[in-house]
């Protein structure tokens, strides 16, 4: 009878060995990739199918799931351009016209192979139902995500995270038809703020046209920022 308390003591250890729940992985992903408010400086490089590539350096400020601002820094041709996005509406400010033009809402993030949902509206715990499956990649957990409502960007995602700290390693994104649309690789985990680590580099490959890919490199990121509501108004463009 003395064995029982000892066994009870061992139970949590056994659970730890089996790994976290799928829900915990989704929540960890949201916390790492989609903090509610942040300001960052990125470098986005898109490689086209003809081999040409373009690199933009931009600063962006995000608040909530659907508000963000972009200020382009480089190259010189787009310097001074700004973007404001509020929900489904998007405006581009062109400095030489000194005017903001409303643009059709394209799902592509800044014309690259990222989807807006990959960068801005990260809410996997709310949008997907996760199931843990055996991973075929060493030192990772693998979760299969299935959309819980029709407004998610993807129908299904396969997500790989590191065993030791649940940082994302790779992801595969599927359409409703079952087709593989994109795949991502996350690397260069860095500490950007106290207690906040995340991959600094994400390579997103367009699986429909494998020669196309986009790389997002975070130069800096700060969670401790002020993002007052007036920053997310049309009148603030160009200031």
């Amino acid at each position: 009878m003395r064995l029982l308390p000892a066994l009870l003591l061992l139970l949590p250890l056994a659970a730890a060995a089996a790994g976290p729940t799928a829900e915990a992985i989704l929540k960890a992903y949201d916390a790492v990739m989609g903090p509610p408010v942040f300001e960052a400086e990125n470098e986005l490089t898109s490689v086209r199918e003809d081999g040409s590539s373009r690199t933009y350096v931009m600063r962006f400020l995000k608040r909530d799931a659907d508000k963000f601002r972009v200020w382009f820094r480089e190259p010189a041709s787009v310097k001074g351009q700004e973007i404001l996005r509020l929900g489904d509406n998007m405006w581009v400010y062109l400095p030489n016209l000194k005017r903001a033009t409303r643009v059709a809402n394209r799902e592509s993030f800044q014309g690259g192979d990222f989807n807006n949902a990959d960068v801005l509206r990260v809410n996997y715990a709310g949008d997907y139902e996760g199931t843990l499956v055996p991973s075929d990649v060493p030192d990772t957990f693998c979760a299969k995500l299935k959309a819980t409502h029709p407004e998610t960007a993807y129908d299904a995602i396969t997500l790989y995270v590191r065993r030791k700290d649940l940082q994302p390693v790779a992801a595969r994104y599927y359409a409703s038809s079952g087709k593989l649309l994109r795949s991502a690789e996350f690397s260069e985990v860095k500490t950007f703020a106290k207690g906040y680590d995340r991959p600094a580099k994400v390579v997103m490959r367009n699986e429909l046209v494998p020669a196309r890919s986009s790389t997002l490199v975070l130069r800096s990121l700060s969670l401790d920022v002020e993002a007052p509501p007036q920053r997310f108004m049309q009148t603030d463009l160009g200031r």
């Binding site: 799902e107 989807n115 807006n116 949902a117 959309a147 029709p150 407004e151 998610t152 960007a153 993807y154 129908d155 994104y173 359409a175 409703s176 038809s177 087709k179 649309l181 429909l208």
Partner: peptide, 16 residues
């Protein structure tokens, strides 16, 4: 050819 389009809700889909 593979056609790709996005639903009004933001869902990306692709079909051959």
């Amino acid at each position: 050819v593979a056609l790709q389009a996005t639903s009004p809700g933001g869902r990306v889909n692709s079909l051959d």
